[in-house]
Amino acid sequence: MDDLTSEFDLVLQAFWLTIQLAALSGVVSVLLGTVLAAMRVGPVAPLRVAAATYVNVVRNTPLLIVFVFVFVAFPNLGLLVGTPFLLKGVLAVSFYTAPFVAEAIRAGINAVPLGQAEAARAIGLTFGQTMGSVILPQAFRAVVPPLASVLIAMTKNTSIAAVFGIVEATARMRYFTNNSPDDTIVFLVFAAGYIIIVELLSVGAWGLERRWRVAR
């Protein structure tokens, strides 16, 4: 406990790294996931197959193994050796999360009535324009709650980075538990930190959902 209070800046630094990791991964996952979802519902068969394969392979791979690939296997092959650790963490988390995002968005796309796409095509929009201007904006609305769940899981998943060279919250927690005779308080403090971050995410999602519902 004394360690925690006297070195509380270390706790804050660690959570700041967790937030960076989660925020960057969130952006990359949503972008990558959106592209994957569009590929899956798109008219080009090879892209549909490629996206479906990626989603199925990566979604069925444990996150830890994705991390091992990015942090150990690739560098052993000479790839990503000079890449900063935070960026590798973002890559690993995003590679893993994107298929879940893609599936959530695909569900959202399927929830948009078919007539919306037909109307868009009927006024001459291309597939890309139909997706970008008509389908995805509506899909995202339907997708906010499941997407929030995916991003919350992702935020907690960033803790795997603790054993891959990134001193984020969980890694720092291990440092304190290693030194402290009273682990329980350390656990509670760090759990509270994660809960706060996740609650902020939930509140943000709730706000978006409300705003968009009113706008309809």
Partner: peptide, 16 residues
């Protein structure tokens, strides 16, 4: 398609 206007039974206005 841009040269062919279409009106649907269920309107299909862009809801957003």
């Amino acid at each position: 398609r841009a040269e062919v206007g279409m009106v649907f039974q269920s309107f299909n206005l862009f809801a957003h």
